[in-house]
Computed example of a mutant assay.
Amino acid sequence: MSKAAKLTFLGSCVFAVGTIWFVHKAQVMERDSMYQGVVRDQERKAQRERNRREFEETRALHAELTREQPDVGKSGPPGHD
């Protein structure tokens, strides 16, 4: 085999290995990126649930305090009587 053929073959092999490595690396990075999206979605869902529970607790507390002090919601600000 001639020297030019050997260099062409070697160059082709290096190019093929480099392309395979690049595609593999891109797939790994894309998979990691997609997984981070799942993690963020789970965090958002958990935060939404915490917010909903806190809202329900606040609403229940407000209802309880309004029952205990019925005049609070009906009058204006203090000092405007």
Rank of each mutant, 00 (worst) to 15 (best):
S33D: 13
R59A: 09
Q47M: 06
R53Q: 12
E49T: 05
S33C: 12
R53A: 11
R52D: 06
R50V: 04
E54H: 03
M1P: 01
P77A: 13
R59L: 13
K45C: 06
R53I: 14
V28F: 07
A46C: 03
T58K: 13
T58V: 10
A16N: 07
Q42C: 02
V38I: 06
G76F: 08
R31H: 07
G76E: 07
M29L: 12
V17A: 14
E56T: 08
A60Q: 12
E49I: 03
P77C: 06
D71Y: 13
R67M: 10
K45Y: 06
V28P: 00
Y35R: 10
S75D: 07
R40Q: 07
F15Y: 09
T66H: 02
L10P: 01
A26F: 04
V14E: 04
T66S: 10
R67G: 02
D32N: 14
L7M: 13
F55I: 02
R59C: 08
Q36P: 00
R31K: 12
R52H: 10
L61W: 11
Q36T: 04
E43H: 04
L65R: 09
E57H: 11
T58W: 12
R44Q: 09
K6C: 08
R48T: 03
G73W: 10
Q36I: 06
A4N: 00
R50E: 10
A5K: 04
R67E: 13
Y35A: 09
Q27A: 14
K25H: 07
D71Q: 12
F15V: 12
A5C: 04
N51Q: 05
E57N: 15
E64W: 03
T8N: 13
L7H: 08
L61I: 05
Q36Y: 01
F55V: 03
R53T: 11
P78C: 00
E54I: 01
A16P: 00
